[in-house]
Write a protein that binds this DNA or RNA. Structure first.
Lengths: 232, 232
DNA sequence: GGATATATCAATCTAAAGATGTAAGACAAA
DNA sequence: TTTGTCTTACATCTTTAGATTGATATATCC
């Protein structure tokens, strides 16, 4: 399987020596992957990653000394195109979310069948991102929960809906930091007209100045259609 | 299946009448679900949702008249505990992301086998969130990508790091829509001092006015470790 | 046809924001 | 001690922002 190119090389990082040995045996005996290194230390693991450039790292995320997530971040920063799969004893939604956020390509529970781990490695080796169905569900519960508050706030009444098309255009330019003159220039209308629109926007959004208008817009789904960030 | 309680009731919304008929037949003949309504109009669909309180809605997200995502948002706002599964012709990552963000409990491609749709409905009816493995992978590529830029952007040079502690306080109040007087009052300093700080902030962030300063702050991780929103 | 909503523009005025220069006290590092 | 940064503060001035009133043209809706 995928042996036509070359065997994918795997590095194992797990502070539990027993589990480490077990996984190594599993991979060596029941898969096409080559284990190029094993370690119980996250820090050593990072160095081994630099040294051997494995294709895949299986990383335990529950380690005392150094947090597995931290180790993932450090390895990701190296930008070595190493694909990391998390091994974890817990299906904690927050943990899954953070792992995927910082770039893990997979997340498998230690309690899952060994076939599942091999399958995850196959998928990840093929360039995909793999999360077991059950964990996917947990991830999305957490993911959607982080937005629900926002939705509720704007669910009450989104004043943005009262804006006319033109006013939305003006507001959009406001949310890009334009002043009256710049907006007038971009919309090919006079500055006084822009002032009229802006004043109407203030009335409708019930704010006093452009900064508040911009903040209202950004906090109430005035989609600049690009993402903003989520804290780790 | 799950018939021990009662048959889950399903509402179908799809502007393609042919596809609508096909799905209805599929569900009626090959599943335990009861179709309580079908419509080709998103707006009518919203009203039917209010009227019938179905357990599940299958929603086409590629409709002309009204955007399917918009319809989902409106239904979610009603807070009727209706679980919505997206039906789509496209495995567009952005579309999947936005759908899941606003609360869809599943996302299935029209090209997928009918068994997959039934399976998705079973999972969703059981309270889970379901995304086919292939789409999960696409979702996470998009998801992780949305953070990579940030990391890089803020890695280049984040001008926010040049701010002093006091300037950060002032900027924080700026990002809450305060004017000079309000900031002076909250920090127990004079208005002229606030002006000094604000001017220094402008210099350091290389912007011309407070709106631009606020936008810079929000776009460069001035979000104080709480989740911020992602635009739909 | 008349009511209503929208988009355009102008004049005027007040308040707020922003630019610039100066400076004193606190405090920490060299 | 000196140097430097930070915080505070004031004066002055120009520019921009915002409020208000009024007016015209163009649609759309009933």
């Amino acid at each position: 399987m995928r042996d036509f190119k070359r065997r994918s090389r795997v590095l194992l990082i797990d502070d539990n020596a027993d589990h480490l040995r077990g996984v190594k045996e599993l991979i060596t005996l029941e898969s096409c992957y080559e284990v190029v290194g094993t370690t119980t230390s996250a820090n050593i693991g990072i160095n081994l990653a630099k040294k051997y450039h494995p294709d895949i790292i299986l990383m335990d995320v529950n380690m005392p000394e150094k947090d597995g997530l931290q180790a993932i971040q450090e390895i990701e920063k190296l930008d070595l195109d190493i694909r990391i799969i998390c091994l974890s004893g817990y299906d904690d939604a927050d943990l899954i979310f953070r792992a995927m956020k910082i770039g893990a390509k997979g997340y498998v529970l230690k309690t899952m069948a060994s076939a599942q781990l091999i399958y995850a490695m196959d998928e990840v080796a093929a360039g995909k991102i793999y999360l077991p169905t059950a964990l996917t569900s947990r991830f999305f519960e957490y993911f959607q929960n982080s937005f629900r508050e926002d939705t509720k706030a704007s669910a009450e009444e989104n004043l943005l809906t009262y804006l006319t098309a033109r006013e939305e255009e003006v507001l959009d330019l406001l949310t890009q930091g334009n002043n009256y003159k710049a907006i007038a220039g971009k919309l090919f209308i006079s500055e006084t007209t822009v002032k009229t629109h802006v004043n109407n926007i203030f009335q409708k959004l019930q704010v006093n100045d452009r900064t508040q208008a911009v903040l209202y817009a950004l906090n109430n789904g005035f989609a600049n259609r690009r993402l903003s960030k989520i804290a780790v």
